[in-house]
């Protein structure tokens, strides 16, 4: 077949008005100058910087001026900046700006499918119980721990986090902490756990890098937690955890099944 084309290089264009192969578009490869690509890179780096600054600025604003910013603003701004960055990458680095428009179409269809997926799944899982009360509680808060067995044979009676806390308290009772050598009473161990929990566990591990500490930002977005107390969210979010009397808090938050 190749020799046919060699003999008549433009044969198909002559006899074929409906050219399905895009032959009319011989040059696809647009070459960007290195200056242009560098500018794009710096724009991307600037937006990366910006999104970190904005995230911190919001916390700072909340703390210093004590204004109330709705909890979704934070996510919206971050996603907006990420979308701008992604658009730059798509248009210039990935060549959608000058390339085959069909590729852009493919990407748009992908986003359509993604939107359907996310949208309808959220529509269901976040909108339970508008008509039937029992449908509202399909997810048990914290989990029951029922039915989970690890290869080690360990099983759970409540949330995973409660078991982790329980193990730590038992360890503290046996070994103690650097400041309070063990063995300790249960109350003592729980007290040390409390101290660590509030001061931040990480201060007792000076060897850890900052990446692995619990970064205490100045403020969480108010409204995210119902009793919006700065730095005290742990209590607000899960009072049972601070209370040693309730070692298995999950049982207090069951799915309220009317049956």
């Amino acid at each position: 077949m190749a020799h046919d084309h060699a003999a008549q290089p433009d044969a198909d264009q002559e006899f074929n008005p409906v050219d399905p192969h895009g032959h009319h578009e011989r040059i696809h490869h647009h070459v960007y100058s290195w200056q242009f690509l560098t500018v794009v890179l710096f724009i991307l780096l600037f937006f990366t910087f910006l999104t970190i600054v904005v995230s911190d600025a919001e916390s700072w604003l909340v703390k210093s001026i004590a204004i109330t910013i709705p909890d979704y603003v934070n996510a919206l701004i971050a996603m907006f900046i990420a979308t701008i960055k992604a658009t730059f990458v798509l248009l210039f680095f990935m060549g959608l700006r000058r390339g085959n428009p069909m590729n852009g179409m493919i990407f748009l269809f992908t986003l359509f499918a993604f939107a359907m997926f996310l949208g309808f799944t959220a529509l269901d899982l976040l909108n339970r119980g508008h008509v039937y009360e029992y449908k509202a509680h399909s997810i048990v808060a914290g989990g029951t721990g029922v039915g989970i067995t690890l290869p080690s044979g360990a099983s759970f009676q409540g949330p995973i986090t409660a078991s982790a806390r329980e193990r730590e308290i038992e360890r503290l009772m046996a070994e103690g902490s650097p400041d309070h050598p063990g063995p300790l009473s249960r109350e003592g161990a729980e007290h040390i756990w409390e101290l660590h929990f509030h001061e931040g566990h990480e201060e007792h591990h000076a060897t850890l890098s900052t990446a692995n500490q619990h970064i205490r930002r100045t403020g969480l977005t108010p409204g995210l937690f119902i009793p919006a107390e700065h730095g005290d969210v742990s209590h607000a979010a899960d009072p049972e955890h601070a209370d040693p009397e309730h070692a298995e808090p999950a049982n207090d938050q069951p799915a309220a099944n009317p049956h």
Partner: peptide, 20 residues
Amino acid sequence: QGKAPGAFFSYPYAHDPHEP
């Protein structure tokens, strides 16, 4: 530190039961 996924989570100072 025990900040592992799911049931292998063993970090004792979790602030929320859904952190796994």
